[in-house]
């Protein structure tokens, strides 16, 4: 009896506040804006027949006619993909350095990577506004060095979005790679060198393949949230930076077009299913390998 209650309470909670809301989004994405007053009045007691009769792919058709959405999805994918690669390039050497550091430093280094996790995301993004603006610290520094003669425009460009994503998601990349490298037996490198590898080939043939799972996990952990990111493009990007999270937010709050916003959400979700499933599979494989 208690077991039933134990399962039922969190189950019911998640059904009500996670699954049903999605079904509502899905339903609204298939409803007509004209009928939706103001902007949409959902009725849950319509009955199945009415529901099916009311199904309408107009909003999805609309998304294909206006190339804003299509461009936004593409540029989101592009930004997420490139920033993931950049995060990997920045994060791998850090994770590698940590794993090679003396044992007594590692706990401290680990804490230093985790600390930003606990710090407000918004504040960490905001910190870059003061650095990247035309009068910001970076431009002052570059001017003082004499590297540039007039301030570079970085804030409100896609470059700033890249910097923001790399910065905020760096710990997500470092931690799984570090975990994989930390587990690796040092004598493997020595064995490779003993068998005639140079430092670099040993790294390429032994270290990289053995940290592969960490790299994959890290890339997904950056790519998935970056794709739907809202705060970074809104704060650091300019009007030219199209990202789908931002479009959804604006569609909803500025245009008050709930059905279209819902349709945008449904498509974003569909796009996300692929990396999420791949990520889960990678995690599962890793868990099995460890057993």
């Amino acid at each position: 009896m208690r077991r039933v209650a134990l399962i039922a309470v969190p189950y019911a909670w998640l059904l009500t506040l996670f699954l049903i809301p999605f079904l509502i989004v899905f339903k609204i994405s298939l409803s007509d804006m004209a009928l939706a007053i103001p902007p949409y009045t959902p009725t849950l007691n319509d009955g199945l027949a009415a529901l099916i009769a009311g199904l309408d792919f107009e909003n999805f058709v609309f998304l294909t006619t206006d190339d804003l959405y299509y461009k936004a999805y593409l540029s989101s994918l592009q930004i997420a993909l490139f920033s993931t690669l950049m995060t990997l390039l920045v994060g791998y050497p850090i994770a590698y350095g940590m794993a090679r550091a003396p044992q007594e430093w590692r706990a401290t280094l680990m804490m230093l990577v985790i600390l930003p996790f606990w710090t407000s995301f918004l504040i960490r993004v905001y910190a870059w506004v003061g650095i990247l603006s035309n009068e910001g610290v970076l431009n002052q520094f570059l001017l003082w060095l004499g590297l540039v003669s007039e301030p570079l425009t970085i804030l409100n460009t896609t470059t700033a979005v890249y910097i923001g994503i790399v910065y905020t998601y760096l710990p997500f990349m470092i931690l799984p790679i570090y975990a994989a490298l930390d587990r690796m037996d040092d004598s493997l490198i020595e064995a490779a060198e003993d068998l005639g590898c140079s430092r670099l080939t040993a790294f390429w043939l032994v270290t990289i393949p053995l940290s592969r799972n960490g790299i994959i996990a890290g890339c997904f952990l950056v790519f998935i949230p970056a794709l739907g990111e809202f705060v970074i493009p809104s704060l650091l990007g300019g009007s030219g930076t199209l990202m789908i999270g931002k479009v959804l937010f604006e569609e909803f709050f500025n245009n008050r077009d709930w059905p279209v916003a819902s349709a945008v959400a449904v498509i974003l979700l569909l796009i996300l299913i692929v990396p999420i499933v791949l990520f889960q599979r990678n995690q599962q494989r890793q868990a099995e390998a460890e057993q």
């Binding site: 009500t16 999605f22 509502i24 809202f230």
Partner: peptide, 15 residues
């Protein structure tokens, strides 16, 4: 854990 916040927010508001 992996859901974009905009979607979670939107769906809860509609609920």
């Amino acid at each position: 854990l992996v859901m974009p916040e905009v979607i979670t927010g939107l769906s809860l508001l509609l609920l």
